[in-house]
Design a protein around this nucleic acid. Structure first.
Length: 686
DNA sequence: CATACATGAATTTTT
DNA sequence: TTCATGTATG
C-alpha cells in the first residue's frame, strides 16, 4: 500500500478503525483514494472482502469504486468486496430474508413506469400528470420513513390527504402483487432489521465495516438502514463499524429527499464519531478555489472546512456577459478554439456546464456548426437501449454498408441462421482481402471458404438490406416513412423476437413500445419541417435514408464520445464528481442559477442548495474557469432582461477578469471610427 | 371517436 | 422551441 502518498488527514481517515468515522471530503480532496485505501487497510486488519460493504448511489459509482479498489487490493479481493448501491444491497437482503416480512423470494421490482400504472389504477385516474404527482409525493413520504398511516397524519392539505389515501391503496396492491418499488428496496430491509432480531444479528455480523459514499445525499430511510446495519454507539455494542464519506457543501439532492439532517445527526447519534475534514485540494488552481470558497462562505456552516491548494494561483476566473443564449454558445465555441490554439487543450479537456437540460440546445447547434465534436452527458439514454440499438444498426447499415459493427448486429438480430461459424469465416475472408463484411458476401472467392446454409443466409440478408435501402431512398414524408418502417419490422419479425428474448411479457411490451416510439420519432423527422442549420433553411420532406444518415452521425458521435476527444455538455447535477481542465459555467443568471420557478418563493434552504450547485460547478474546473451570464434571457416566447446571478458577485472576483467579446470590441472600435469619420456607413452588420 | 390545431408551460435524476 | 393538454371539428 502506497500509504506514503496520503496526506496526514487522509492517513488519519484510513487508519481510524477504532470508532465511527466521518470524512468531510472537500471537492477534489482525494476522497476515492481514502475509501480504497481504507478498504485495503481493513483487509490487512483481517476482514474478509465480503465483510466490507461499500455503499454508493449509482451502479456506475459502484463499478468505478470496485475498479479503483482492484488496483490496490488485487482482482481476487476486489471481486468479493460487497460494493453495491443502497438499492442493490436492499435487493440482496430481501431476496435472502424477505420471507420474514411475508414477501416471496421471487418478488418483482416495479420500475417507475409500472408504479405510474398502478397509481393510475389505484387512484382511478387516467390523468398522467396527477398520477405522477402522487408518485412523487408518495416517494418522498416513503423516503422519510412514513407508511400510509404516517402519511395520513403528515398530510397538510386536501391534495396531500388524497395522496395519502391513494398511497394506502397503492401499498395494498403492491402487497397483493408481491411487488416492491424502488423505495421499498430501502424501506423494507430497514423494517426487516427493526422487527426481526435474528435477521438484524445476521446482517450486522455479515459486515465488519460499512463505508457510505456521498453521505450527504442519503435520505432519512437510508440513514436508518445504515444505522441498523452497523448498530448504535456505545461500548457494549460492536460500534464504530462505519466510515461515512461526504461533503455538506456538495449536497444538491435535497429536492429528491436527501437530507442534510443526516450529517447533523451523525455526531449526536454517535458521540464517539471522529470527524476528519479533507481540505487539501489536488484539482484546482488557487483562483478557482478562492472563488469557490467565497461563494460557499455565504451558506451557514455545519462543519468548518476551507479548501486550499498547492497548485498556485493560475489564471483568473473569467466572467463574460453575453447577449443571449446563441451569443453565449458562440463565445463558448470561440473560447474552446482559443484553448486549443493557445493552451494546446484537447476537446475532452473542456466542459460546458449548465443548470437545466434545455440550455444544451444552443451549444449543440453552435458546436455542430463549428464542427466541434461533443457529447451531452446524461442525455439521450434512449439510444442506449438494446432494442433501439438494434434498429439503429440496421439504419446505419443502410447508410453505410461497410459499417462492420452495424453489420454484425443487424445480421444477428433477430437470429436468421447466421451464426458464429459463418461470421468467423466471413470476417476472416473480409480481413484477408481488406473489404467490408458486407462486400465480402458477394465476393467471388467467398463460396470457396463458405458453403451451404450460411452462405444462403448471408446472401438473403444482403438482399434484404439492399431492398430496404432502395425503398428507404425513395420513401419520404411522415406517413409513408412510418408505413415502411412498420412493414419492415414485421418482415423482420422483430416484435416476436422481443417476446422470445424477454421472459416477462410486460417487459417485451415495454420494449416494443420503445420501438414504436422510435418509429414515430423517425417518421416525424421525415415529415416536412423547417430547419435552420448553419444558416440555411430547409423545408422539404426528408427520405427515410436521409434521417438514417442523421441518426448514424448522432450514433457515431455518441459512440466515439466515450473514449474520443469530445467536448462535454452536462448539467451541474450530472457533473458532480467529475473534473475538467477547462470549464465554462453557462447561464449564471438570477432565475436560472439560482433557479426560480414560475411563482415559487425562494426559501433560504432552496437558495443554499442552489449555491452549493454553483459551488459544485466551480470546483469541477482544474485550470481555467469561465462564467458566462446573459443580458437577455428567453422565458417562453418572451425575452426578458437577464440579471447576472448573485453568485457571480459572491465569487468576489477582480473587475479585471471581466472579458469583453472580441467581436463586440471590434464592433465598438468600428463604431468609434464611424463616429469620428464624417461619411461613415451606418450599416453595423447583423 | 380520432385527429388537428391552439394554447400554455417550461429544474435538477437514480434506483 | 418543444411538449403536453384541451378544445373543436370532421
Amino acid at each position: 500500500m502506497s500509504a506514503a502518498s496520503l496526506n496526514p488527514a487522509q492517513l488519519e481517515a484510513v487508519h481510524h478503525l477504532a470508532g465511527p468515522c466521518l470524512v468531510l471530503a472537500g471537492a477534489g480532496s482525494g476522497k476515492t483514494r481514502v475509501i480504497t485505501h481504507k478498504i485495503a487497510r481493513l483487509l490487512q486488519h483481517g476482514l474478509e472482502p465480503r465483510q466490507i460493504a461499500a455503499i454508493t448511489f449509482t451502479n456506475k459509482a459502484a463499478a468505478e469504486m470496485r475498479e479503483r479498489a482492484k488496483g490496490l487490493v488485487g482482482p481476487r479481493a476486489a471481486k468479493d468486496l460487497a460494493i453495491s448501491t443502497f438499492h442493490a444491497l436492499g435487493v440482496r437482503m430481501l431476496r435472502a430474508d424477505g420471507e420474514r416480512l411475508g414477501l416471496k423470494p421471487s418478488f418483482s421490482i416495479l420500475d417507475s413506469d409500472d408504479v405510474l400504472g398502478v397509481l393510475r389504477d389505484a387512484g382511478g385516474a387516467t390523468d398522467n400528470k396527477q398520477a405522477r404527482h402522487w408518485q412523487w409525493t408518495i416517494s418522498l413520504w416513503k423516503n422519510q420513513g412514513l407508511d400510509a398511516d404516517g402519511a395520513e397524519a403528515a398530510a397538510r392539505d386536501d391534495d396531500e390527504r388524497v395522496a395519502a389515501r391513494i398511497m394506502r391503496r397503492y401499498e395494498e396492491r403492491l402487497a397483493a402483487y408481491q411487488a416492491v418499488d424502488f423505495d421499498d428496496l430501502i424501506v423494507l430491509p430497514l423494517k426487516l432489521l427493526e422487527r426481526d432480531a435474528e435477521a438484524r444479528a445476521k446482517w450486522q455480523a455479515a459486515f465488519g465495516h460499512v463505508l457510505v459514499d456521498e453521505y450527504q445525499d442519503t435520505n432519512a430511510v437510508q440513514y436508518e438502514l445504515m444505522k441498523a446495519l452497523v448498530g448504535t454507539d456505545g461500548p457494549r455494542h460492536r460500534s464504530g463499524r462505519f466510515t461515512a464519506v461526504g461533503d455538506d457543501d456538495q449536497s444538491i439532492y435535497g429536492w429528491r429527499g436527501a437530507t442534510i439532517d443526516n450529517l447533523k445527526r451523525l455526531p449526536r447519534d454517535y458521540p464517539s464519531l471522529r470527524v476528519i475534514p479533507l481540505e487539501q485540494n489536488y484539482r484546482s488552481t488557487g483562483s478557482i478555489l478562492r472563488a469557490a470558497n467565497a461563494v460557499i462562505a455565504h451558506n451557514p456552516k455545519l462543519f468548518e472546512k476551507k479548501l486550499w491548494s498547492e497548485l498556485g494561483d493560475g489564471e483568473p476566473v473569467r466572467v463574460i456577459d453575453c447577449d443571449g443564449e446563441e451569443h453565449e454558445a458562440e463565445r463558448a465555441v470561440t473560447r474552446i478554439q482559443a484553448l486549443r490554439g493557445q493552451q494546446g487543450a484537447r476537446f475532452a479537456d473542456v466542459a460546458v456546464l449548465y443548470r437545466a437540460n434545455h440550455q444544451a440546445r444552443a451549444f449543440e447547434q453552435k458546436l455542430r456548426a463549428a464542427q466541434i465534436p461533443y457529447k451531452v452527458s446524461g442525455g439521450q439514454s434512449w439510444f442506449d437501449r438494446a432494442e433501439i440499438k438494434d434498429l439503429c444498426a440496421w439504419l446505419r447499415l443502410l447508410v453505410n454498408q461497410d459499417d462492420d459493427p452495424a453489420f454484425l448486429r443487424a445480421a444477428t438480430t433477430p437470429k436468421r441462421g447466421i451464426g458464429h461459424q459463418t461470421l468467423a469465416a466471413l470476417g476472416e475472408y473480409a480481413g484477408k482481402w481488406r473489404i467490408s463484411m458486407f462486400e465480402a458476401i458477394f465476393a467471388p472467392g467467398l463460396p470457396g471458404v463458405l458453403k451451404g446454409k450460411g452462405l444462403d443466409a448471408l446472401q438473403h440478408f444482403a438482399r434484404e438490406v439492399n431492398e430496404l435501402e432502395h425503398r428507404a431512398r425513395h420513401t419520404a414524408g411522415a406517413e409513408d416513412a412510418k408505413a415502411l418502417l412498420l412493414e419492415w419490422l414485421k418482415t423482420l419479425g422483430y416484435e416476436q423476437h422481443l417476446r422470445d428474448g424477454e421472459d416477462s411479457p410486460k417487459l417485451a411490451e415495454a420494449r416494443w413500445s420503445n420501438v414504436l416510439d422510435f418509429v414515430d420519432w423517425i417518421a416525424r423527422r421525415c415529415g416536412g419541417q423547417l430547419t435552420q442549420e448553419a444558416g440555411t433553411f430547409e423545408s422539404e420532406k426528408l427520405t427515410v435514408l436521409d434521417v438514417a444518415q442523421t441518426i448514424s452521425i448522432i450514433i457515431s458521435l455518441a459512440e466515439r464520445g466515450d473514449e474520443q476527444d469530445v467536448v462535454t455538455l452536462s448539467t451541474l447535477h450530472a457533473a458532480k464528481g467529475l473534473e475538467w481542465p477547462h470549464v465554462v459555467l453557462a447561464g449564471v443568471n438570477e432565475g436560472l442559477l439560482p433557479f426560480r420557478g414560475a411563482d415559487e418563493e425562494m426559501t433560504a434552504e432552496r437558495l443554499e442548495e442552489e449555491r452549493r450547485l454553483m459551488y459544485v460547478g466551480i470546483t469541477r474546473a482544474q485550470r481555467t474557469l469561465t462564467v458566462s451570464t446573459l443580458k437577455r434571457r428567453k422565458r417562453g416566447r418572451e425575452t426578458v432582461a437577464g440579471v447576472p446571478s448573485r453568485f457571480v458577485v459572491e465569487m468576489k472576483l477582480d473587475e479585471a477578469v471581466v472579458k469583453e467579446d472580441p467581436r463586440e470590441r471590434l464592433r465598438r472600435l468600428r463604431e468609434e471610427l464611424a463616429a469620428r469619420g464624417a461619411a461613415a456607413s451606418p450599416a453595423a452588420g447583423r
